[in-house]
């Protein structure tokens, strides 16, 4: 059997296992973002949004929908890989991979694809729910697809790195709670950075999630606070940097091999 065939079958095996996992526990993986986002749509979009009026040239509900979809994609991609890979480490079932001929790049690609699958699945659920509250049009399909895919890949890689360094379950909750969630809320999901004073506008420009949210918003609505192609380019650069780092961790067997 050729190595290429082994890697291909192994990749499919990891992806199938990952998708089976989040589908099996859909009450923990797919249902919560649906409920949370529905609450956001009702409370922020309808109740408060009706008093806010327009934001960034569109009504407030339309403005927040792209940000909330992106928020679901980011947090679920990250959470899927972080919890799944750490759980495998904790139960030592990661050793099943370590004793096999599966290469680090295949392991990484498999877990990332699992994270992307969950990110896109929740993104799709939230998008469908949003259609109940607002009308969605797609301004630029290519940008929508690219930014969703690249963001899901980047945050899946982030979840993987978190899981590699984590030694207890608390460790995979720290980054989402103290880093990702604040950056998402400050990343222009609920407001345009035009509303901020000059200094805070400049500070916001260092928040990578701002670029993802705005690029996605551009794909849907055609309005953005940032340069879309610069954002997509930076996503690729970060994927290469963090992806390379993840491969290095896998080669070293960090946290897995003694």
């Amino acid at each position: 059997m050729t190595d290429a065939r082994i890697q291909w079958v192994a990749f499919n095996t990891i992806v199938t296992k990952e998708v089976r996992r989040f589908m099996r526990i859909w009450q923990q993986t797919l249902l919560p973002p649906a409920i949370t986002m529905t609450l956001y749509f009702v409370i922020f979009g309808q109740l408060i949004g009706s008093r806010i009026g327009d934001m960034g040239g569109v009504n407030y509900m339309s403005f927040i929908v792209p940000g909330l979809i992106m928020m679901s994609v980011i947090t679920n991609s990250y959470g899927n890989v972080a919890s799944s890979f750490f759980s495998n480490k904790w139960q030592r079932s990661v050793e099943e991979l370590m004793v096999s001929p599966v290469r680090p790049i295949t392991i990484l690609a498999g877990y990332i694809s699992g994270g992307v699958a969950r990110g896109i699945a929740t993104g799709a659920i939230v998008t469908l729910l949003s259609l109940y509250f607002t009308h969605l049009q797609i301004h630029n399909l290519l940008v929508v697809v690219l930014v969703i895919l690249l963001s899901a890949i980047l945050f899946s890689i982030g979840g993987f790195i978190n899981a590699v360094f984590a030694t207890k379950f608390d460790d995979i909750a720290i980054i989402p709670t103290f880093v990702i969630t604040p950056l998402t809320y400050l990343g222009g999901v609920f407001y345009s950075i035009d509303l901020l004073p000059g200094f805070w506008q400049t500070v916001s420009m260092f928040n990578p999630i701002l670029y993802m949210v705005n690029t996605f918003r551009y794909g849907i609505l055609g309005v953005s606070d940032v340069d879309v192609w610069f954002s997509l380019g930076m996503l690729v650069v970060f994927i290469l940097i963090f992806g390379g780092f993840s491969l290095r961790l896998l080669h070293q067997g960090k946290g897995m091999r003694h």
Partner: peptide, 29 residues
């Protein structure tokens, strides 16, 4: 083939899935 001292499989997966998943890591569908 390796049979370790400590249990090292996913406690939530079904018996059959554990075995065929391992086969997948060796290139067998």
């Amino acid at each position: 083939g390796v049979v370790p001292q400590e249990f090292n499989f996913n406690q939530f997966e079904k018996v059959y899935d554990i075995v065929v998943t391992q086969a997948g890591y060796f290139g067998l569908t």
